[in-house]
Every structure is written in structure tokens, then in C-alpha cells.
Amino acid sequence: MLLVPCPYCGPRNSVDLRYGGESQPRPDPATATPEQWRGYLYRRDNPADWLRENWYCRSGCRRWFTVERNTATNEFRHPPMPGDKRGGKA
């Protein structure tokens, strides 16, 4: 049972949160080509390495936040930040 560091509630059991996936910058919908937009929708870095990702503290403070986690070891690093969608591989 992973302990996920919610910035407001502190480390919580992972079942209390919802995993939001790789943080991806949202392209400008006004100028993105279909390939770029669908890259945002579908393609992922999916590294076995440090990854910037989003979590939603579903059972607690109900805030979205962004953290960096090593997907191979499940360590977290850096104080978590309020939700932002800057790029994937950390």
C-alpha cells in the first residue's frame, strides 16, 4: 500500500487517492494539429524512471497535486506542488 504525499493531508494510503497519470502540457487547442492534439490525448513517455504525475486526493482534501515519483522504485521526491500539467518525464 503505497504512501502518497498529499501536500495538504500528508502521506496517505494510495487507495484514498485517485491516480491522474503522467502530467502532460495541454497544447493550445486553437493552433494544435490533429497529430499534436492526439499525441496529447494518447501518446505517453511511460518511463521506468522519475516521472512528473498528477494525483487527486479523493477521500481527503479533494485537491489535485503534482509530484515526481520514480516508477521503478515508487519513491517520491520534492515537496509536492499544487496541480499543474507541465511535462511528463521529470
Binding site: 491516480y19 503522467e22 511511460n46 516508477t71 515508487n74
Partner: peptide, 12 residues
């Protein structure tokens, strides 16, 4: 639900 390469398994 969580994307990870660690396959240690969970109690839940």
C-alpha cells in the same frame, strides 16, 4: 490503478 514498473504486489 497506479502506473508502475514495480511488481511486488499489494495486500489490498
Amino acid at each position: 490503478p497506479v502506473a508502475t514498473y514495480s511488481i511486488r504486489g499489494s495486500l489490498e
